[in-house]
Protein backbone atom coordinates (compact mmCIF):
# COMPACT_ATOMS: atom_id res chain seq x y z
CA UNK A 1 0.00 0.00 0.00
CA UNK A 2 1.40 3.36 -0.99
CA UNK A 3 1.89 6.09 1.59
CA UNK A 4 -0.78 8.17 -0.14
CA UNK A 5 -3.58 5.69 0.48
CA UNK A 6 -2.79 5.52 4.19
CA UNK A 7 -4.73 8.16 6.02
CA UNK A 8 -3.51 10.36 8.82
CA UNK A 9 -5.31 7.99 11.20
CA UNK A 10 -3.18 5.06 10.04
CA UNK A 11 -6.10 3.30 8.42
CA UNK A 12 -6.81 2.53 4.80
CA UNK A 13 -8.28 5.44 2.80
CA UNK A 14 -11.80 6.13 4.16
CA UNK A 15 -11.28 3.67 7.05
CA UNK A 16 -12.76 0.52 5.49
CA UNK A 17 -10.54 -2.17 4.00
CA UNK A 18 -10.79 -2.73 0.25
CA UNK A 19 -12.65 -6.06 0.52
CA UNK A 20 -15.37 -4.42 2.60
CA UNK A 21 -15.63 -1.51 0.18
CA UNK A 22 -16.03 -3.94 -2.74
CA UNK A 23 -18.81 -5.79 -0.90
CA UNK A 24 -20.63 -2.52 -0.15
CA UNK A 25 -20.07 -1.24 -3.69
CA UNK A 26 -21.62 -4.39 -5.16
CA UNK A 27 -24.61 -3.96 -2.83
CA UNK A 28 -24.99 -0.31 -3.89
CA UNK A 29 -25.03 -1.26 -7.60
CA UNK A 30 -27.75 -3.87 -7.01
CA UNK A 31 -29.69 -1.38 -4.87
CA UNK A 32 -29.64 1.16 -7.71
CA UNK A 33 -30.73 -1.51 -10.21
CA UNK A 34 -33.73 -2.47 -8.02
CA UNK A 35 -34.97 0.90 -6.72
CA UNK A 36 -36.41 0.68 -3.19
CA UNK A 37 -35.38 -2.94 -2.60
CA UNK A 38 -33.32 -3.51 0.57
CA UNK A 39 -30.08 -5.30 -0.34
CA UNK A 40 -28.57 -7.26 2.58
CA UNK A 41 -24.90 -6.47 3.20
CA UNK A 42 -22.26 -7.58 5.68
CA UNK A 43 -22.29 -4.46 7.83
CA UNK A 44 -19.02 -3.93 9.72
CA UNK A 45 -18.40 -2.74 13.20
CA UNK A 46 -17.44 0.91 12.99
CA UNK A 47 -15.59 3.07 15.51
CA UNK A 48 -18.93 4.50 16.68
CA UNK A 49 -21.99 2.81 18.16
CA UNK A 50 -24.97 1.53 16.21
CA UNK A 51 -27.54 4.28 16.06
CA UNK A 52 -24.90 6.89 15.30
CA UNK A 53 -25.10 6.41 11.57
CA UNK A 54 -22.86 3.39 10.96
CA UNK A 55 -24.87 2.45 7.87
CA UNK A 56 -24.54 5.89 6.35
CA UNK A 57 -20.86 6.04 7.28
CA UNK A 58 -20.16 2.73 5.54
CA UNK A 59 -21.99 3.83 2.38
CA UNK A 60 -20.15 7.16 2.38
CA UNK A 61 -16.81 5.40 2.93
CA UNK A 62 -17.43 3.09 -0.03
CA UNK A 63 -18.43 5.95 -2.33
CA UNK A 64 -16.18 8.86 -1.36
CA UNK A 65 -12.99 9.80 -3.20
CA UNK A 66 -10.25 12.37 -2.65
CA UNK A 67 -11.97 14.94 -4.91
CA UNK A 68 -15.27 14.87 -3.06
CA UNK A 69 -16.61 17.61 -0.83
CA UNK A 70 -18.54 16.22 2.12
CA UNK A 71 -21.40 17.75 4.09
CA UNK A 72 -22.90 16.00 7.11
CA UNK A 73 -26.18 17.02 8.74
CA UNK A 74 -28.04 15.78 11.78
CA UNK A 75 -31.71 16.82 11.79
CA UNK A 76 -30.79 19.58 9.36
CA UNK A 77 -27.95 20.95 11.50
CA UNK A 78 -24.26 20.93 10.56
CA UNK A 79 -23.13 21.72 14.11
CA UNK A 80 -24.66 19.00 16.28
CA UNK A 81 -22.64 16.18 17.85
CA UNK A 82 -23.40 13.47 15.30
CA UNK A 83 -22.72 15.70 12.31
CA UNK A 84 -19.54 17.18 13.77
CA UNK A 85 -18.06 13.82 14.71
CA UNK A 86 -18.82 12.12 11.37
CA UNK A 87 -17.44 15.10 9.46
CA UNK A 88 -14.28 15.00 11.60
CA UNK A 89 -14.06 11.24 11.06
CA UNK A 90 -13.95 11.56 7.27
CA UNK A 91 -11.61 14.52 7.37
CA UNK A 92 -9.23 12.33 9.37
CA UNK A 93 -9.55 8.99 7.57
CA UNK A 94 -10.10 10.26 4.00
CA UNK A 95 -8.71 13.79 4.16
CA UNK A 96 -11.61 15.03 2.03
CA UNK A 97 -12.73 18.62 1.86
CA UNK A 98 -15.76 19.34 4.02
CA UNK A 99 -18.37 22.04 3.82
CA UNK A 100 -21.60 23.11 5.46
CA UNK A 101 -23.03 24.58 2.25
CA UNK A 102 -25.43 22.26 0.46
CA UNK A 103 -24.62 23.71 -2.97
CA UNK A 104 -20.87 23.06 -2.58
CA UNK A 105 -21.13 19.43 -1.45
CA UNK A 106 -20.79 16.43 -3.76
CA UNK A 107 -21.67 13.91 -1.03
CA UNK A 108 -24.13 14.79 1.74
CA UNK A 109 -24.62 12.36 4.60
CA UNK A 110 -27.82 13.03 6.47
CA UNK A 111 -29.65 11.97 9.57
CA UNK A 112 -33.38 12.62 9.29
CA UNK A 113 -33.57 15.60 6.92
CA UNK A 114 -33.25 16.51 3.26
CA UNK A 115 -31.61 19.95 2.82
CA UNK A 116 -33.92 22.83 1.90
CA UNK A 117 -31.57 23.99 -0.89
CA UNK A 118 -32.59 21.99 -3.99
CA UNK A 119 -30.15 19.17 -4.81
CA UNK A 120 -28.62 19.02 -8.27
CA UNK A 121 -27.46 16.45 -10.81
CA UNK A 122 -24.29 14.71 -9.65
CA UNK A 123 -24.85 15.12 -5.91
CA UNK A 124 -25.18 12.03 -3.72
CA UNK A 125 -27.39 12.06 -0.64
CA UNK A 126 -26.55 9.32 1.89
CA UNK A 127 -29.21 8.64 4.52
CA UNK A 128 -28.55 7.10 7.94
CA UNK A 129 -31.33 4.59 8.50
CA UNK A 130 -32.28 3.06 11.86
CA UNK A 131 -35.00 0.63 10.72
CA UNK A 132 -35.08 0.05 6.96
CA UNK A 133 -38.13 -2.22 6.85
CA UNK A 134 -41.31 -0.13 6.47
CA UNK A 135 -43.44 -3.13 7.41
CA UNK A 136 -41.45 -4.08 10.54
CA UNK A 137 -43.83 -2.59 13.10
CA UNK A 138 -46.75 -4.27 11.36
CA UNK A 139 -45.07 -7.67 10.90
CA UNK A 140 -42.02 -8.49 13.03
CA UNK A 141 -40.92 -11.60 11.11
CA UNK A 142 -38.30 -10.95 8.44
CA UNK A 143 -39.40 -14.07 6.53
CA UNK A 144 -42.92 -12.63 6.25
CA UNK A 145 -41.98 -9.07 5.31
CA UNK A 146 -39.61 -10.45 2.67
CA UNK A 147 -42.46 -12.47 1.15
CA UNK A 148 -44.73 -9.42 1.29
CA UNK A 149 -42.19 -7.41 -0.71
CA UNK A 150 -41.72 -10.33 -3.12
CA UNK A 151 -45.46 -10.55 -3.76
CA UNK A 152 -45.91 -6.75 -3.72
CA UNK A 153 -48.43 -7.30 -0.93
CA UNK A 154 -48.71 -3.93 0.78
CA UNK A 155 -52.33 -4.07 1.95
CA UNK A 156 -51.20 -4.07 5.58
CA UNK A 157 -49.56 -0.68 5.17
CA UNK A 158 -52.76 0.79 3.79
CA UNK A 159 -54.67 -0.72 6.73
CA UNK A 160 -52.24 1.04 9.08
CA UNK A 161 -52.78 4.39 7.34
CA UNK A 162 -56.54 3.75 7.34
CA UNK A 163 -56.45 3.10 11.10
CA UNK A 164 -54.75 6.47 11.48
CA UNK A 165 -57.72 8.05 9.74
CA UNK A 166 -60.21 6.05 11.83
CA UNK A 167 -58.50 7.12 15.09
CA UNK A 168 -57.44 10.67 14.31
CA UNK A 169 -59.52 11.72 11.31
CA UNK A 170 -56.36 12.11 9.23
CA UNK A 171 -53.14 10.23 8.47
CA UNK A 172 -51.23 10.99 11.66
CA UNK A 173 -47.90 9.49 10.53
CA UNK A 174 -45.61 12.51 10.47
CA UNK A 175 -42.15 11.04 9.90
CA UNK A 176 -40.75 7.90 8.24
CA UNK A 177 -43.83 8.21 6.04
CA UNK A 178 -43.86 5.21 3.65
CA UNK A 179 -43.26 5.79 -0.06
CA UNK A 180 -43.59 3.63 -3.15
CA UNK A 181 -40.51 3.76 -5.37
CA UNK A 182 -40.80 3.49 -9.16
CA UNK A 183 -44.22 1.92 -8.77
CA UNK A 184 -42.90 -1.27 -7.15
CA UNK A 185 -41.29 -1.35 -3.69
CA UNK A 186 -42.73 0.28 -0.60
CA UNK A 187 -39.80 1.90 1.18
CA UNK A 188 -39.04 3.59 4.47
CA UNK A 189 -37.52 7.00 3.67
CA UNK A 190 -35.78 6.87 7.12
CA UNK A 191 -37.19 9.13 9.87
CA UNK A 192 -37.27 12.30 7.78
CA UNK A 193 -40.34 14.47 8.43
CA UNK A 194 -43.01 13.85 5.81
CA UNK A 195 -42.40 17.51 4.92
CA UNK A 196 -39.32 16.22 3.04
CA UNK A 197 -41.04 13.37 1.17
CA UNK A 198 -41.91 15.44 -1.93
CA UNK A 199 -38.20 16.31 -2.32
CA UNK A 200 -37.43 12.64 -3.02
CA UNK A 201 -39.75 12.55 -6.02
CA UNK A 202 -37.83 13.00 -9.31
CA UNK A 203 -34.81 14.35 -7.41
CA UNK A 204 -31.83 14.92 -9.75
CA UNK A 205 -29.51 13.61 -6.99
CA UNK A 206 -28.72 9.95 -6.32
CA UNK A 207 -30.16 8.86 -2.96
CA UNK A 208 -28.46 6.03 -1.06
CA UNK A 209 -29.67 4.56 2.25
CA UNK A 210 -27.51 2.67 4.73
CA UNK A 211 -28.77 0.78 7.80
CA UNK A 212 -25.75 -0.48 9.77
CA UNK A 213 -27.36 -2.43 12.59
CA UNK A 214 -30.03 -3.90 10.30
CA UNK A 215 -27.47 -4.57 7.54
CA UNK A 216 -29.40 -3.20 4.59
CA UNK A 217 -28.58 -0.83 1.73
CA UNK A 218 -31.18 0.61 -0.63
CA UNK A 219 -31.33 3.37 -3.21
CA UNK A 220 -33.39 5.73 -5.30
CA UNK A 221 -31.75 6.60 -8.64
CA UNK A 222 -32.07 10.19 -9.89
CA UNK A 223 -35.32 11.20 -11.64
CA UNK A 224 -37.26 8.34 -10.07
CA UNK A 225 -40.94 8.35 -9.23
CA UNK A 226 -41.38 8.38 -5.43
CA UNK A 227 -44.98 8.50 -4.20
CA UNK A 228 -46.09 8.88 -0.60
CA UNK A 229 -48.84 6.35 0.10
CA UNK A 230 -52.30 7.86 0.58
CA UNK A 231 -55.99 7.53 -0.28
CA UNK A 232 -58.05 9.35 -2.90
CA UNK A 233 -60.21 10.97 -0.20
CA UNK A 234 -57.24 11.52 2.15
CA UNK A 235 -54.44 12.71 -0.11
CA UNK A 236 -50.89 12.98 1.21
CA UNK A 237 -50.19 16.29 2.93
CA UNK A 238 -47.05 17.83 4.39
CA UNK A 239 -46.74 19.74 7.66
CA UNK A 240 -47.54 23.44 7.48
CA UNK A 241 -46.31 26.14 9.85
CA UNK A 242 -48.31 29.22 10.77
CA UNK A 243 -45.33 31.50 11.35
CA UNK A 244 -42.05 31.94 9.48
CA UNK A 245 -38.61 31.11 10.93
CA UNK A 246 -37.94 33.48 13.85
CA UNK A 247 -34.33 33.98 12.77
CA UNK A 248 -34.40 34.30 8.96
CA UNK A 249 -38.10 34.73 8.22
CA UNK A 250 -38.22 31.81 5.80
CA UNK A 251 -41.57 30.29 4.94
CA UNK A 252 -42.18 26.89 3.35
CA UNK A 253 -39.25 25.37 5.24
CA UNK A 254 -39.26 22.82 8.06
CA UNK A 255 -39.14 24.47 11.50
CA UNK A 256 -37.96 23.22 14.89
CA UNK A 257 -39.72 24.34 18.05
CA UNK A 258 -37.32 25.81 20.60
CA UNK A 259 -38.45 26.19 24.22
CA UNK A 260 -37.14 29.48 25.62
CA UNK A 261 -38.20 29.44 29.30
CA UNK A 262 -40.48 27.62 31.73
CA UNK A 263 -43.39 30.05 31.22
CA UNK A 264 -44.45 28.79 27.82
CA UNK A 265 -42.10 30.95 25.79
CA UNK A 266 -41.06 29.33 22.52
CA UNK A 267 -39.90 30.11 19.05
CA UNK A 268 -39.85 28.31 15.70
CA UNK A 269 -36.57 28.29 13.79
CA UNK A 270 -35.25 26.61 10.64
CA UNK A 271 -34.17 23.01 11.08
CA UNK A 272 -31.71 23.46 8.17
CA UNK A 273 -28.98 25.59 9.78
CA UNK A 274 -27.06 26.21 6.55
CA UNK A 275 -30.14 27.50 4.76
CA UNK A 276 -31.02 29.70 7.74
CA UNK A 277 -27.52 31.15 8.13
CA UNK A 278 -27.11 31.96 4.43
CA UNK A 279 -30.50 33.67 4.41
CA UNK A 280 -29.51 35.76 7.46
CA UNK A 281 -26.17 36.65 5.82
CA UNK A 282 -27.94 37.66 2.59
CA UNK A 283 -30.37 39.83 4.53
CA UNK A 284 -27.50 41.51 6.38
CA UNK A 285 -25.72 42.25 3.08
CA UNK A 286 -28.88 43.85 1.73
CA UNK A 287 -29.23 46.04 4.81
CA UNK A 288 -25.59 47.10 4.56
CA UNK A 289 -26.00 47.94 0.87
Amino acid sequence: MSAVTMSEAGTNFAYLDEETKRMIRRAILKAIAIPGYQVPFASREMPMPYGWGTGGVQVTAAVIGPDDVLKVIDQGADDTTNAVSIRAFFRKVARVAVTTHTAEATVIQTRHRIPEHPLIEGQILVYQVPIPEPLRFLEPRETETRTMHALEEYGLMHVKLYEDIAHHGRIATSYAYPVKVAGRYVMDPSPIPKFDNPKMHLSPALQLFGAGREKRIYAIPPHTDVRSLDFEDHPFEIQRFDEPCALCGARNVYLDEVILDDRGGRMFVCSDTDNCESRQADAQKETAA
Binding site: T5, F13, E18, P66
Partner: peptide
Protein backbone atom coordinates in the same frame (compact mmCIF):
# COMPACT_ATOMS: atom_id res chain seq x y z
CA UNK B 1 -2.82 2.68 -7.37
CA UNK B 2 -5.44 0.09 -6.41
CA UNK B 3 -7.30 2.04 -3.71
CA UNK B 4 -7.97 5.24 -5.65
CA UNK B 5 -8.31 3.50 -9.01
CA UNK B 6 -11.00 1.19 -7.63
CA UNK B 7 -12.79 4.18 -6.11
CA UNK B 8 -12.82 6.16 -9.36
CA UNK B 9 -13.82 3.16 -11.48
CA UNK B 10 -16.62 2.34 -9.04
CA UNK B 11 -17.90 5.91 -9.18
CA UNK B 12 -17.95 5.75 -12.99
CA UNK B 13 -19.88 2.47 -12.87
CA UNK B 14 -22.24 3.76 -10.16
Amino acid sequence: DPVFAAQSVFRAVM
